[in-house]
Design a protein around this nucleic acid. Structure first.
Lengths: 246, 246
DNA sequence: GGGGCCAACTTGTTCAGACAAGTTCTCCGC
DNA sequence: GCGGAGAACTTGTCTGAACAAGTTGGCCCC
């Protein structure tokens, strides 16, 4: 908690969480908050902008801000890392590598990872579970420059993200996710312990470093009875987009 | 295009779109942009903050901003309204009401729409298509205070959103979406023209007005071979969250 | 009681300046 | 040629001020 506006945002979040400000009620005016925390209005605006982006409060010119929701959404760290997400819920993340091999990059791999076609990239198939029960099948392709660090990882390591950070200082900073539904194939069904052709939630994502360099792309399939995703949107911020096939 | 920072944001978006700034390259410094557009640095910061929220550029202290992606994501208006989305793609939105009736609000309805339990709410089942081909099944529950305006709508109207705005001035301002996958039931399969138990992408959402008042909640099922969703995230903004079943 | 108008309030936009903190690049010495 | 130190650059934080634009609530009149 370094900066003042982050402190204030956090304090407001907690106040909403413990229903000091209830859903539907109005937040104090900027000038009042500025006086209360002894900061300028600009700093207060930075704080409430964060809550607005999270979908906790709504804001429109002329009217006081409204509390829209109370439950705080998880952090990006929790979304990037399966293990961190599990830990935040008080569950244990388990995982094993089912297959791992180098293959020359296809045109698709090359385009997504910004590499020349034919560069050897590392394919990894992981099964991940919560408290031992498999819920996610991860087919990940790593760029050549990070692959050596991934290759040496213990097949049962709970957190690849954490290990990569510890060994190479790599941070996953940006992600693009495409979500749809698919039927479980024979292999999927076996590894996840569901019946063939049961519906799976598929998330295809590309992750990049802070410098904007793509690190990996992945085809993740979730047991839809165990996991769902949640997104909030507003006229001001629209992270979610609908797309047609191909 | 009213405000200066919106103009600048739009100009930058277009420049990225026509690859004047290519993916992976660096944006000019704030001070340079400020000079170029003859505005203060604060105004430039507002403009680039918008692009950052959209996932188009990445930003970190000390380094110049990096272009992360070029394709512009659709607006919130397009996400809220099926018809607007279709129009933006140059496709024709079709739709028909398959069933419509009032029912007393269940505890779940009451909680989601912030109404007293037992209040009569309007259930509507709509089939929507692109160029005549059905792609979406919409089971929507409308709050009692907006239901009369919905009831009178032509069953084949392409855009409910537009009609509600025209007749009542209502704007859908905020939305919370929970996404998972389900198998098509017999009714779903028939209405969408797919085989039973094929995977569907389910989006359950609650929409509220600008005042933060819930208007409707809906269970939308998309043919997963026709539609997918896309979300971008970063350490700074995380609209997407993973959830476990109940 | 209802409708309309206005004043007070509140958020949005923009400016200019100062300092903090992190990154990048150059130059120097080895 | 390589690495390290440091300067120059760049984004992040924060202040204080002024005006624009939209909302809300109260008051008055019919």
């Amino acid at each position: 908690m370094a900066t003042r506006h982050e402190e204030i945002a956090d304090e407001l979040r907690r106040a909403i969480d413990r229903e000091q400000y209830t859903v539907g009620s109005r937040l104090p005016a900027e000038t009042e908050l500025a006086a209360r925390y002894a900061v300028s209005r600009g700093t207060v605006r930075q704080a409430v902008a964060a809550l607005t982006a999270e979908g906790l409060i709504g804001s429109r010119q002329g009217a006081r801000r409204v509390v829209l929701a109370s439950r705080r959404s998880q952090s990006f760290a929790e979304l990037r890392s399966f293990a961190q997400w599990a830990a935040a819920m008080g569950r244990e993340a388990t995982g094993r590598v089912a297959a791992q091999e180098y293959r020359p990059a296809t045109a698709q791999d090359a385009s997504r990872l910004q590499l020349p076609e034919g560069t050897p990239v590392l394919h990894v198939l992981r099964v991940r579970g919560l408290d031992g029960e498999p819920v996610l099948l991860e087919r990940t392709v790593y760029a050549d420059w990070i692959a050596p660090a991934v290759e040496g990882i213990d097949p049962h390591a709970p957190s690849v993200t954490q290990l990569l950070f510890d060994t190479t200082g790599l941070v996953f900073a940006y992600g693009e996710h495409v979500i749809d539904a698919v039927a479980a194939g024979a292999r999927d069904a076996e590894l996840l312990g569901v019946r063939r052709s049961s519906p799976l939630l598929r998330v295809r994502r590309v992750t990049t470093t802070r410098e904007g360099r793509p690190v990996e792309w992945s085809d993740d399939r979730y047991r839809s009875d165990a996991v769902s995703f949640s997104v909030h949107n507003s006229t001001a911020s629209n992270a979610l987009a609908r797309k047609t096939a191909e």
